[in-house]
Write a protein that binds this DNA or RNA. Structure first.
Lengths: 246, 246
DNA sequence: TAGTGGTCTAGACCACGCT
DNA sequence: GCGTGGTCTAGACCACTAA
């Protein structure tokens, strides 16, 4: 039976039972690894395991379902839902290839290195002023055309495993990759689109004076803490951005 | 005591109790009008009124809180929260005025008229192919500069009251106005940003060849049904679009 | 101190998917 | 028919607000 008393967070002392159970189930999903598309134990089993009533388990699971980490199917069970990144954050950029089809741009990591703290970015990531960062430079392409030029910053302590991975092993989509390698799961993000004609900042071949789209993103993990700061530049042509507001 | 059997919808027959109560409370909020910032009856009072247990009332209220229609404050009560449009849909467009401050553009309705069905738009709004529409043309300005040119289509039957209102009486923000005049409450929207240099479609003064931003929006009411289709064109300069993705 | 919403329990019965 | 999650109940006790 899992212990709910071993939680290191101080807030846990006053946290409701169902919250502590939620966090525990969450970490069991990520670390001990129930497989995706497999059912987790039934509500009544979990109630026995944690020695609480079924209602409390339901309340714990409720938010995990809301966040898209679990999927309930009446009559069958509750299933791990390895989050469908394709249908969430990554669908907002829609580019057409030469055939007119919408595609996810491929990506090519140009560089990845540890860098010293950068005041503005450390602040965006809620880090101490002297915490080092990991900086990634990356191009995104459709067919052979570069459509986006991205700079990405991560907390060095959280994402240290990335420093030991060869660049060509990086996957096309970073968020599932963060999850696999660093157990950091991007659940939400704030984005800001604007326009600039300052080309000094990026690698995109462009005529001086051309407008570029500038997209700033702060991505958050399950706990709502910022874990990635990203700036992307792109040409407006063939660009399409879709979003649901609620 | 409110009757939950008078519901006209057929789906109501199989709908859970808490859903029927939710809808009933919702319509009491909108139509019979508990005032905003006033508390609604306590959970135990509502439980007696509807002759159900407190848990069922809590479940009914839960979603109204999620949707931002009610606000619970422990120890005080549950309050009507006339939705804060300023902080939701309308904050995504951020324009700077001459002083560099972010402002909500003012608006000027150019025309409002009933028009025959338009296949693509009727489809977007989930309307029968022959349902007439209301079309609104509107300019949005910062200081004296036009920044957005908008075309808006609504279902004529739902928004018929608008046809009898003089244009100068329209408010700067349409969504609260829809709510006041037609009891239609915009809760969410899908937006799509792209770029065009086709100027035939709009009133913006622009040099041929200049890129314009094109924003298409389908806005939904509480029930998730589409009620407004909107296309806006604007200049990229000073444009900023902010969004939370989750 | 009285009244509100917040947490938690224990259990009944229903709707659904499987075999 | 059995096991799953879905709905609903009745009631205990806690945390917070206000007079």
């Amino acid at each position: 039976m899992p212990s709910l008393l071993s939680t290191t967070s101080l807030a846990a002392l006053t946290m409701p039972l169902y919250e502590r159970i939620r966090i525990d189930i969450q970490s069991r999903m990520i670390q001990q690894g129930w497989a995706p598309d497999e059912p987790i134990p039934t509500e009544s089993v979990l109630a026995l395991e944690y020695n609480v009533s079924v209602g409390t388990i339901r309340k714990a699971i409720e938010r995990l379902v809301q966040d898209g980490l679990l999927l309930k199917i009446q009559g069958k069970g509750t299933f791990i839902k390895r989050p469908d990144f394709k249908n969430s954050l990554l669908r907002f950029f829609r580019y057409r290839n030469a055939l007119g089809q919408f595609v996810v741009p491929s990506s090519e990591i140009q560089s990845l290195q540890q860098v010293p703290a950068i005041p503005y970015i450390n602040q965006q990531l809620g880090l101490d002023a002297d915490t080092p960062l990991i900086q990634i430079e990356r191009l995104r392409m459709v067919d052979t055309t570069v459509v986006l030029s991205e700079s990405i910053w991560l907390s060095q302590p959280l994402f240290a495993p990335l420093l030991d991975i060869e660049l060509h092993l990086f996957k096309n989509l970073l968020y599932p990759f963060y999850y696999e390698t660093c157990q950091q799961f991007v659940l939400s993000a704030n984005e800001s689109l604007s326009f600039t004609n300052d080309h000094t900042d990026n690698d995109l071949a462009a005529n001086v004076g051309d407008l570029l789209i500038k997209i700033e993103r702060v991505a958050h993990n399950i706990e709502g803490l910022p874990i990635e700061y990203r700036v992307s530049y792109g040409h407006p042509q063939n660009f399409r951005y879709e979003v649901r507001i609620s």
